[in-house]
Structures are given as C-alpha cells and as structure tokens.
C-alpha cells in the first residue's frame, strides 16, 4: 500500500516537473514568468488526443503533438516575448496572461467546452506483483519523464548550447558580449519547454482520462509555486520541488486527509517552506 502511494506520488511529481520545466528555463534566462506555458500543456493534450483519434497510433500522436506544441513555443517567443524584452517585466507577464486566456478560449472554440475522454491503449501492459499494480500509463509517465529530464540534463551539462544557456542565466549581457546569440538560446528554450509541457499534458489527459480547455489552470498556479520553491529558475530545484510536492500531496490525501482540496496542499507547502527557507529549496545565489 505504501509503495503504491509512493509510486502514485512519483507519477504526479513527474508530471509537475515536466510542466514546470519550460517555465523554469524561461525564468532562468529572461526573468519572465511564462504563464502561457500551462496553455501549451492543454494544447499538447488536445493535439495528442485528436492525433490519437484520427490515427490510432499513440507514438505518432505523442510525436505530432510534441512537434506542434514545440513549434508553437517557437512562434510565441519570436513574436510575443522577444519584441517586448526591453520593457519592464510587467509587460511580458501581462502578455503571457493574455496569451494563456487566448489559448483556453481558442481551444473552447475549436474543440468545444465539454470534457473529452482520452482512452489510449499502450503497446505494453501493467506490471503486477502480489502487492503492487503499476498500470501502463504510470509506467509511461515515469519512464518518459526520466528520459526527457535525462536528455535535458545532458544538454545543460555537456553541450555547447547548454553552456551558453547557463552563462546566459547568470549574466545575459556579458553572455551576449561573448558571442552567445541570445535569440537562439531563447528559441531553443521555448521549443524544448513547450514540448515538455505538451508531453505532460498528453500524459495527464491519459492518466485522468479527460481533456478540457481549462485543464491548464491548476498546473499554471502550481507551476508558479514550484518555480519559487525550486529556487527561481533552477532546473534541478524545480525537479526536487515537483517530486516533493507530488509525494506530499499523495501521502497527505491518501493517509491523513486534509480539510482543503487536494490542490491546495502545494500552496500550504509553499507557504511553510518559504517561511523556513525564503530563498527556496535550492537557491542559485551563492
């Protein structure tokens, strides 16, 4: 039972990590809170669902949805954020809130307001032992998240573009002077971040068997909590915070019960942790 709950928490935490990663990376270099990243989560879920309904191939629908949403991320940074970068930070923030609302209403117009089911059959079965059942969607979420985060880790730690990203996050102006094409770094950042959010959206759609226009709402708020908890723009901190919140939520909801809705737990945890450690779990500052 406890193992089952821990696994459940890990699954939830994985999804949170993927959802918050794009916005964490963006905050890391531009100091902008990209709320619209949670819109990419809903776009990804819808794209994945429609591709699955029309092709019946889950692999194809993942690939297609990720590519489409990644491209959307590229367009967003190029035509929304880059033009307002030299304005005060409130301008891009409001732009991102506007875009987020636009995405939700666009999805409502195109796909209708009702909740759609997302029942996909995966090419592998559940893992069953005497005490434990891991259903295929859980396996998918844990494996895919681990793979994507490992890929991101490799990119940041060992490649030239990763080094450029880290330098830009530490001192954007000097990185530019050293020859780092900031526009390119930002473009890759959005491409990757929106692709991650799309992946999370599809997986959550499958996990809860539901896709709906405002499905990005709660993730948007939680994403903000996770970015703050993770130390503002620190990818490793965000993963740690996401897994921790996933586990805390699941364990409290499963064992202790809580007088507030489950989704409130993340924010209670945020308040408590910020009271103890105001700089977040892992601060970037020395």
């Amino acid at each position: 039972m406890i193992v089952q709950q821990l696994l459940n928490g890990l699954v939830i935490g994985s999804v949170y990590a993927l959802t918050a990663m794009g916005a964490t990376l963006v905050y890391g270099i531009l100091r902008i809170l990209d709320l619209a990243n949670a819109g990419a989560y809903a776009i990804g879920a819808y794209a994945g669902l429609f591709l699955y309904l029309s092709t019946g191939n889950i692999l194809l629908s993942f690939a297609g949805a990720i590519a489409l949403t990644g491209f959307f991320g590229f367009v967003v940074q190029r035509y929304l954020y880059i033009p307002v970068l030299d304005r005060p930070p409130i301008v891009p923030l409001i732009a991102s809130i506007g875009l987020f609302i636009f995405i939700q209403d666009l999805l409502r117009l195109v796909a209708g307001p009702r909740i759609r089911e997302f029942q996909a059959s995966l090419p592998f079965g559940a893992i069953k032992t005497e005490t434990l059942t891991i259903n295929p969607t859980w396996i998918l979420i844990i494996v895919l998240t681990a793979a994507l985060l490992a890929f991101l880790w490799y990119l940041l730690a060992y490649t030239k573009i990763g080094l450029a990203w880290r330098a830009t996050a530490q001192d954007l102006e000097i990185a530019k002077a050293m020859g780092v094409n900031i526009n390119q770094v930002v473009a890759y950042n959005f491409l990757l971040g929106y692709a991650f959010a799309a992946t999370a959206g599809i997986m959550v759609g499958m996990l809860y068997n539901s896709v709906f226009p405002t499905m990005g709402d709660v993730p948007a708020y939680k994403m903000l909590a996770l970015i703050v908890l993770g130390g503002l723009g620190n990818p490793v901190g965000t993963v740690a915070a996401a897994v921790m919140i996933g586990l805390i939520e699941t364990l409290i909801a499963g064992y202790i019960g809580f007088f507030l809705p489950r989704d409130a737990i993340a924010f209670v945890a945020l308040i408590i942790i910020l009271l103890i450690k105001p700089e977040g779990l892992m601060s970037r500052k020395a």
Binding site: R166, I174, G179
Partner: peptide
Amino acid sequence: PEGRRVFPDLTVEENLKIGGY
C-alpha cells in the same frame, strides 16, 4: 567589462570556453 563580471556559477574553464564561444 567593469567589475569583471565573470560567470559566477561556471568553472574557470567554462568561463574560458564561453570567451571562445
């Protein structure tokens, strides 16, 4: 630059690599 502005959380060698980006 004024005030040195080395990249604080990069290693010495990584700073040089960015210089030769």
